[in-house]
Design a protein around this nucleic acid. Structure first.
Lengths: 188, 188
DNA sequence: TCCTATGTTGGACAGGTGTCCAGTCAGGTG
DNA sequence: CACCTGACTGGACACCTGTCCAACATAGGA
């Protein structure tokens, strides 16, 4: 359970673990990564790693959450809603594709049942929702909840398909741009 | 690798394994199920089970595929495309919700990397696509590929959210019905 | 009837997962 | 400066996963 009232020493340990996790992920991929190898790379014992990381899935979810939110994307009000949504789709997928191994790892990881994973899952979902909401809303008109829901479902569906290997992460951006056009056709 | 050129004795063993798998799934849930307990329930040794089931994930994928296709749904041409799509959404989710444990099991399972899982994943995706396609197409007009893709993505997104526990499988039907309305608003 | 092909078996194997706990060590407190 | 709190350690634990292989048994052909 990282992040809730940790003293500096503990925070430092968590940072080292997460940094080591990302390195290990890049180095060997998510299949080969184990919490113990991450612990070793962080110069920490496995027991310690397990006091901060509930599971491999939790590690991936935490890394993904950090990756997603560490660089905040510009939210403009310029252009039409369609253009803003398409820009959001591109920006999100671009951010995700920066760490392909992380993307591959997080899709199954977020389906896990650990409470820590569930917590992060909600936060990540809320983040996506909020991005789409601010892209869709006009100064004088709030976002239509029905349209918003379709956008979120479509986006998660695309991530799922990419996670399964049915689409590359490069393809999903253009598919999503096309999808926005289709969805918004009757909802401008 | 079930199903390809098995002699009657082997086919019988596979049937017993799959039946036992479904029973076990209903009885103890997908977390507690192991290939070995399924083998035991089927009255077969673990080694035998592994000659037909590459993995737990493969078992779930196979069971889901069978469940999905064992009762073929009526495909009418009556009503509007929106109505047919909504009926398809309801029918698919109704079929899935019949076996809630199977639904919960298959979502993570289909993300697996085993070749057997990948094969079934493609088949299942193709099945969904074909259902939506025949609901969307008019006698005189083929289905719009862009709309079709949005429908499939939305549907997989909804399944994903249900698999994560963000929605119940009962909720997703009505959400999907609403989603069809939104998507088709500009695409009738 | 015997033989043989082949499906099935038991059991060992090498890994991985997450848990637990008694023991160690260092940094801040008195 | 001695102490003591609390983070960290080492290592064993129970369990699961999928693989392998020599041995067994049984149905169908000779």
């Amino acid at each position: 359970m990282p992040r809730q009232g940790l003293n500096p020493r503990q925070a430092e340990t968590v940072e080292r673990l997460l940094a080591a996790g990302l390195e290990e992920l890049r180095a060997v991929g998510h299949e080969a990564l184990t919490v113990r190898t991450v612990a070793q790379r962080a110069g920490v014992s496995p027991a310690t790693a397990y006091t901060y990381l509930a599971s491999k899935n939790h590690l991936f979810a935490e890394l993904f959450w950090r990756h997603l939110t560490s660089a905040q994307l510009a939210r403009t009000t310029a252009g039409t809603a369609v253009q803003r949504l398409q820009a959001t789709m591109r920006a999100l997928t671009a951010r995700i594709v920066e760490e392909p191994e992380l993307a591959a790892a997080v899709t199954p990881a977020l389906l896990g049942a650990d409470p820590d994973v569930a917590r992060l899952r909600l936060r990540i979902g809320a983040e996506f929702l909020s991005r789409f909401e601010s892209a869709l809303a006009e100064p004088d008109r709030p976002a239509d909840p029905g349209v918003l829901e379709v956008l979120v479902l479509t986006f998660s569906g695309a991530l799922l398909q990419a996670g399964m290997g049915l689409m590359t992460y490069d393809e999903i951006a253009e598919r999503l741009v096309a999808a926005v056009e289709v969805i918004m056709r009757g909802n401008r």
